[in-house]
Every structure is written in structure tokens, then in C-alpha cells.
Design a protein around this nucleic acid. Structure first.
Length: 459
RNA sequence: GUGGGAAUAGCUCAACUGGCAGAGCACCGGACUGUGGCUCCGACGGUUGCGGGUUCGAUUCCCGUUUCCCACCCCA
């Protein structure tokens, strides 16, 4: 730290997650892995950046995410271009010089760059990997992914430009049963199990079916027609929505608009027979397994790929960003990315928001040291290191001081670290090969022979 | 992207109408040279987010800017 160098800070919308808060994050991720494991999900890790086209085609060009929130850049492809140029030179020299690079490579490669994007969500990347590695050959895939996502939105509480999602997907060829309502119900019930294990109460599950693309087209049409005569009486937001995205009218919270919205057509009236039965069966299973939900036929989800089942878990005390997780079915996504038919359903938990709901109720998930070793006097660091190594190999959590500390300072450090025991390693102890072990909670101190240290500390 | 509020020590916050920038906690040292928490004493800690303007004088008023918070939008 020198003079008046301006401090470099975390950039807008990003943040450091520091201890002890990181312990809560570990706790959440541990529980997630444990629960997912019991439903036979396996972890997948995909790259944090992908080709821009993946999200444009997968998530949808017209969504807010793709149209204005992605971190996208042109990535130089120099080596590729150099090889191409020398290749062209070579060919021209041999054959008399008619060849142009335009015939060799696609336009974006000719320009020497390719468009890349930091992933704004997880599903597109997972489906890309599913297609790329022919994962459908394995039958149904139950996958989960934990990691950061990036969206260039204006930050506020519970909304960051780098945020973390815990994502899970069930995807496979239709013959594997991936289309079954049983999968929808299983995934939702799994979430409830996870929330229970995390001790999160007061959540609310909203459920809807957004039908298949045909249903939605008809619904959109009907909605437009129904809005035409009444939209003039609605709030300015709704007037705008009626033009840009009529579905969003249902998000309106203006009291005066509610009677009008109540009378608008609902997606539920436009579901075709298979979609309707599918949705009924999802509800049926959820009811049987005792998962409480509310049908909300006003809930519309913002990503283009959703079909049929859509759901959202909300939690009070999160402010305006009250959705802790959301998900749904995406039966046509694989095809739209050039892959085989691969119906799927998945969800993404906003880990930042989940941790927020936990922070209040959570006491102490930090693992405190079992013992603090206090070397006392010259040459004792080495002796202490040896003992620490033995105890740690015995799976104990050991913190270690320094031989230059006065004993008082070692005690203070041990207390601050929250250690259960302090172990003094001084000349007297080394000579006797027995060490002073004091329980910092009870104040009881005993002398313990070297070989009994681990078992005494464990008590 | 739009609108509103805020920013002072590591943390939580004071500072009247424009007049020497402070407290509690934390941290470090001492009282106490091999025994912590309690107590007492002391020290450290700041370009008042940043840049400009008004003024004899700005943490305070004005303009700009950055970041956070709240709401919109949207979503996890």
C-alpha cells in the first residue's frame, strides 16, 4: 500500500464472498450435492464461456437476456487466420493465384474473430454438451451444475452481474421417459427435499403450464385481441407490454389494472389435450407426495425455450427479487440447437438469494479448530509442526501458532480462533514427552502423553 | 437502460446554521517474562468515495462522476 494509488475495487455488480460467509455457501453446496446424489444426479461442468450463437439460438434472440444483458466479445482467431493466409499463398503460388480466402472459411473466421459470451444461464451449455457428446446414447441423463453466471443488469439487492446458480436437468431421448410428467414431479419434489434439508421455511411454489409452442401462439393471438379494446385504460407499463410482449401484462401489480387482467384469456384455456393431461399428472403426483403448490396461470417465464411445466419458488424477505429458483420443461431446445429430440426439465437456484434467506436463521456452520497448538520458546516450531502433522492426519482440525508468541498471546489467538483445546509445546513438555492440554471451554488442564493426544482431543 | 436515497477509521455510526473530524466495537501494546475470556491504561487508525465549483473557511452548499441501496424493467 503506497502513496495515493487509487484502490482497485471489485467491478460493478461483482463482489467478494468472504469467510465466515463462505461456510454458508459450502453448507448449501454440500447439501445440494447430497440431495442430488440421492436422486441419482451426477455433476457436469461446462465452460464459463461459449459461442454467442448458442445462447442466441437457445435462450432466444428476443429475450432480455440475449438482447441486452450478455457479456459478449469478439475473440481473436489469429493463428487460424495466419495458417489460412499462408495456405492461400502456397496454393496460389503452385496453381497460379486465383484462390481467395472467401472460399476457404466462414465470414466470422475471415474477420479473424469469433463471437464469445460469458454464460448467462446453465441450460443451454448443458444441452450443447448433451448434443456434442451424444449423451442421449446413455438414456436419460440426470445432471447438475454449480457455478457462476453473468448478466449485465443494473445491480441491486439479490441481483449481481456475476451470480451463482445451482442447476439441475433431466434430459434424454423420448424413449428414455424424459418427457414423462413423473420427471417433472420428481425434480420439483427434489427441490422441496433440498429446501427442507437446508432448513428453509416459508417458501411458496407457483406452478403453471405454458403449453407447447402452438398453444402459445394461439394464446398470444387471443391475448392481443382481448387487449386491444381495453389497453387504453391500463397503466403505461401495460400499454407498452401489450405491444412488445403481451404475456408480460400478467406481471402487472397496479391495482387498478387487476380487474381488466382478471378477464383476459389464460394459457390454461389454450392447452391442447396432451399438454393438459401432462400438467394434470404433474399435479397429481405432487399432491400424492405431499408437495404443496399453487396454480398460477398468470406466471410466464422469460426464456423462449420453456414448454409445458413452468414453476417458481419464491421467498418473502428477499425484496423485489423474491424468486429463489425457477425452472421448467424445454422439450424443443435440443432440436433448435441442431440436436436430436431430447425433452428435458430443469431448474436453477439463485444461490446468492438462497444464502441470503439462510443468513438470518443460520447460527454457526463454521468448523472450528479442535485444537490450537502453541509452541513456546526457541526451537519449538519444529516440534509443534510434527505434532500438528500427526493430529491432522488423524482428521483433526488443528491451528498452529508461533514459538515467538508469548503464552498469553497464544491463548488469545486460540480463543479467537474458537479452538476447543490449546496444546502447549514447550521445553518441559518435550522433555517429558507429555504435553499440557487445556480445554478452553471448561478450563480443565491435563498432561497428555504424545500417543494419547489425538484421542484426548477428540473427547 | 429510467427514477429516488446514500457514501465519514477495519465495522456500526456521530459531528447543531458552513468554523480544530469524533465515539463505541475491533486491532496492536502494557498492567501480567509458562496460562485466554473480565477489568484498567495506552497507542494505532482518515486526502470525509473521486473530481471540480462557491467561500476567509466545505464532511456540511452547488455541479459532475463512481459505487452501493430502493423501485421500475427483467430474472436466479
Amino acid at each position: 500500500m503506497s502513496e495515493h494509488q487509487p484502490k482497485i475495487k471489485a467491478v460493478r455488480g461483482t463482489r467478494d464472498i468472504l469467510p465466515p460467509e463462505t461456510a454458508i455457501w459450502d453448507f448449501v453446496e454440500e447439501k445440494a450435492r447430497e440431495v442430488f446424489r440421492s436422486y441419482n444426479f451426477q455433476e457436469i461442468r461446462t465452460p464459463i464461456f461459449e459461442s454467442t450463437e448458442l445462447f442466441a439460438r437457445g435462450v432466444g434472440e428476443e429475450t432480455d437476456i440475449v438482447s441486452k444483458e450478455m457479456y459478449t466479445w469478439e475473440d481473436p482467431q489469429q493463428r487460424y487466420v495466419q495458417i489460412r493466409e499462408s495456405y492461400v499463398e502456397l496454393v496460389n503460388a503452385l496453381k497460379g493465384g486465383k484462390m481467395t480466402t472467401g472460399k476457404l472459411v466462414p465470414m466470422d473466421l475471415l474477420a479473424g474473430t469469433q463471437s464469445l459470451t460469458l454464460r448467462p444461464e446453465a441450460t443451454a451449455g448443458i444441452v450443447r454438451a448433451y448434443i456434442e457428446h451424444n449423451l442421449g446414447e446413455r438414456g436419460v441423463n440426470k445432471l447438475f451444475l454449480i457455478g457462476p453466471m453473468f448478466r449485465r443488469e443494473r445491480p441491486q439487492k439479490g441481483r449481481y452481474r456475476q451470480f451463482y446458480q445451482i442447476d439441475a436437468e433431466v434430459i434424454g431421448p423420448p424413449s428414455s421417459g424424459s418427457e414423462s410428467p413423473a420427471r417433472d414431479a420428481e425434480v420439483i419434489e427434489m427441490i422441496v427435499t433440498l429446501l427442507d434439508k437446508l432448513g428453509i421455511k416459508g417458501w411458496n411454489l407457483q406452478l403453471n403450464s405454458v403449453g407447447c409452442p402452438d398453444d402459445r401462439a394461439k394464446f398470444n393471438e387471443a391475448l392481443r385481441k382481448a387487449l386491444e379494446p381495453v389497453v387504453g385504460q391500463m397503466c403505461s407499463d401495460c400499454q407498452r407490454r401489450a405491444v412488445t410482449n403481451p404475456l408480460r401484462v400478467f406481471d402487472c401489480k397496479v391495482p387498478a389494472d387487476q380487474p381488466i387482467i382478471e378477464k383476459l384469456p389464460r394459457i390454461s384455456q389454450f392447452l391442447d389435450e396432451p399438454c393438459r393431461k401432462h400438467f394434470e399428472e404433474v399435479q397429481n403426483i405432487l399432491t400424492k407426495v405431499g408437495v404443496e403448490f399453487q396454480i398460477n396461470d398468470r406466471m410466464v417465464r422469460g426464456l423462449d425455450y420453456y414448454t409445458r411445466t413452468a414453476f417458481e419458488f419464491t421467498h418473502g424477505a428477499l425484496g423485489a427479487q423474491n424468486a429463489i429458483l425457477g425452472g421448467g420443461r424445454y422439450d424443443g431446445l435440443s432440436e433448435s440447437l441442431g440436436g436430436p429430440a431430447a425433452p428435458g426439465i430443469g431448474f436453477a437456484i439463485g444461490e446468492d438469494r438462497l444464502v441470503m434467506t439462510l443468513q438470518e436463521t443460520m447460527g454457526d456452520v463454521v468448523k472450528k479448530p479442535d485444537a490450537y497448538i502453541a509452541p513456546l520458546g526457541e526451537g519449538m516450531n519444529a516440534e509443534a509442526a510434527r505434532i500438528a502433522r500427526d493430529l491432522r492426519r488423524d482428521s483433526l482440525v488443528i491451528d498452529l501458532g508461533d514459538e515467538n508468541f508469548r503464552l498469553k498471546k497464544s491463548f488469545e489467538a486460540a480463543t479467537k480462533a474458537g479452538a476447543k483445546y490449546i496444546l502447549i509445546v514447550g521445553e518441559n513438555e518435550v522433555r517429558a514427552d507429555a504435553f499440557a492440554l487445556k480445554n478452553l471451554e471448561t478450563g480443565v488442564q491435563i498432561s497428555v502423553p504424545r500417543r494419547e493426544l489425538a484421542s484426548k482431543i477428540r473427547m
